[in-house]
């Protein structure tokens, strides 16, 4: 097994764990963490694709490396927004789960 295959499998496992966590966990904070796990898997995948580009004699393909930085910034802002929403929800005194109470006449 080459190191590229190993990294690819690691990425797949991370993504799988993340998707599982995102669907199964009822708590919003855990869902946000699970999203970050998927993100890590995708970024690892980016690195693997960049390394495969090295087959043509370069040290590594620079394009995925440039993309991964942007991707990390976007994922970071998304996490910040989600956590900020969660804090506001907590401060507003609502129950912290995502399930709606029965829709009242509001």
């Amino acid at each position: 097994m080459t190191s590229i295959t190993l990294f690819g499998l690691c990425a797949a496992v991370l993504i799988g764990l993340g998707v599982y966590g995102l669907i199964v966990n009822p708590q919003p904070l855990r869902k946000i963490l699970a999203f970050n796990l998927i993100g890590s898997g995708v970024f690892l995948f980016f690195g693997m694709i960049a390394r495969r580009g090295a087959a043509s004699g370069l040290g590594g393909d620079p394009v995925p490396q440039a993309l991964v930085i942007t991707g990390i910034v976007v994922a970071f802002s998304a996490t910040a927004l989600a956590v900020a929403l969660l804090l506001r929800l907590d401060a507003a005194g609502g129950p912290s789960g995502l399930d709606d109470a029965v829709d009242g006449e509001s």
Binding site: L22, K31, F35, A75, A78, L81, A82, L89, G93, L98
Partner: peptide
């Protein structure tokens, strides 16, 4: 609170979608 919850749920769906 109910709109914050709706927004958080929307965000989680959208984040999964974009990733």
């Amino acid at each position: 609170p109910e709109t914050l919850r709706a927004a958080l749920r929307y965000l989680l769906f959208a984040l999964l979608g974009s990733v």
